[in-house]
Design a protein around this nucleic acid. Structure first.
Lengths: 219, 219
DNA sequence: TGATAATTTGACCGGTTGGTAAAACATTAC
DNA sequence: GTAATGTTTTACCAACCGGTCAAATTATCA
């Protein structure tokens, strides 16, 4: 029998681990730039340097690849928000949250686009994830922000929309990259635009939220 | 001969106009929620209440429908930015720009998602539009903002990233609607979230940009 | 080395999809 | 009414696509 077909009980051979990684990387490329429906197994297989049946030996279906990718991505996507610390200084926390999210857009644009794609389509694969773990986490952090407001460390504002606006502005640089590049033109072609964005966004939020820093302004 | 096939010379029959409109509306539904590749002609045809060959009598290809939709959408999408007035009061202009964009997210979410989809895919159909007309318009408005800054009406900041951040935050409510709803839960289920968003965003930007209003604070 | 299990390949299949051909049907113009 | 033009339908096709199968090949290990 040749049943195992990747991860039946646990990770088996070194070759399995290696190939699966190559497939996932190729799939991330293809899915993030073509969407689930727009991606073909042949494309992924070719990009991973193997034949379609060979790829299907490691992942039984296209869906299986996609789901694996989504799972991994969701975890890292939430990492920065998890790091948001109630004990920390509001200004420092918000600044570093913005910076972290911006770094993710710079370093993992494919993951960001994969996520954007899924959400655009109505999140058919992760609706439970959104209404469950994500909502809980956001609720928790919103409470932190609300406490800061009550303590007078922050101007009054809706913490949910605050979080949304940080997500939106930072992910924009990954998801709408083509547009950003087209508009900026040759000016600041390289990674410089991420530094500019960080500067602008930190200023916008720190000032806009009327944050009273414990240790005064950094700048 | 039955050659005309929709708009050979000019708009001909009333029936043509009517059917084309129905097709475009159905196509907007289908394209915006499934992407170009994910949409099928059959789906569009069914949603428009006609047979596939009948639909193809009005638009020769799937591409043709998509292009028509994109063209229309781009025009209205840029409308709010065009309305941005150099002569106006900075605070009023930025407030109304935010409000207008937010209204577009509320009233035309399908168009917003169609656009987001196209950009996510690398804007294959509208790259010229982005690097040409869009860039020119943004350059022009960035100059306006820069002038306001020079005149001391606005704190120093990068006008391009300012525009990006308004785009991002406002379109977020259309493009990431599922996520927004999931996180907000039953709380503020209806259209109320747009009012909350408007309140938050206007506050964030007016304060964050350190705008010195001619007529003092509105609130 | 040989047996056993893991991996890879080529050939194939059924369903879907974008699009066509041609004839039937409806509408309008005279 | 009838001829010309505009519209709709039925039947169809070729390419693509997700996935299977069985045989061939390679790696592992006693």
């Amino acid at each position: 029998m040749t049943v195992p077909r990747a991860a039946k009980t646990q990770r088996r051979t070194r070759i399995q681990e290696e190939k699966e990684e190559r497939i996932l990387d190729a799939a991330l490329d293809v899915f993030s730039s073509n969407g689930f429906r727009g991606a073909t197994i042949d494309q992924i297989a070719e990009s991973a340097g193997m034949s379609k049946p060979n790829l299907l030996y490691y992942f039984r279906t296209k869906e299986a690849i996609y789901r694996t990718l989504l799972e991994r991505m969701l975890f890292t996507w939430l990492e920065p928000l998890r790091a948001f610390d109630a004990e920390g200084d509001p200004e420092a926390e918000i600044r570093s949250y913005i910076r972290r999210k911006l770094e993710m857009s710079r370093d993992f644009p494919r993951e960001s686009r994969l996520f954007a794609n899924e959400i655009l389509r109505g999140a058919p694969h992760i609706e439970d994830e959104l209404a469950g773990p994500l909502k809980d986490l956001v609720d928790e952090k919103a409470e932190v922000i609300r406490a800061w407001i009550k303590a007078g460390k922050l101007g009054r504002c809706d913490p949910y929309h605050l979080i949304f606006s940080i997500w939106a502005t930072t992910q924009h640089y990954a998801d709408f990259d083509v547009q950003v590049r087209a508009v900026l033109g040759e000016r600041r072609a390289g990674e410089g635009r991420f530094d500019d964005a960080a500067r602008f966004l930190e200023l916008l939020f720190v000032r806009g939220l009327d944050i009273k820093s414990a240790k005064g302004s950094f700048g």
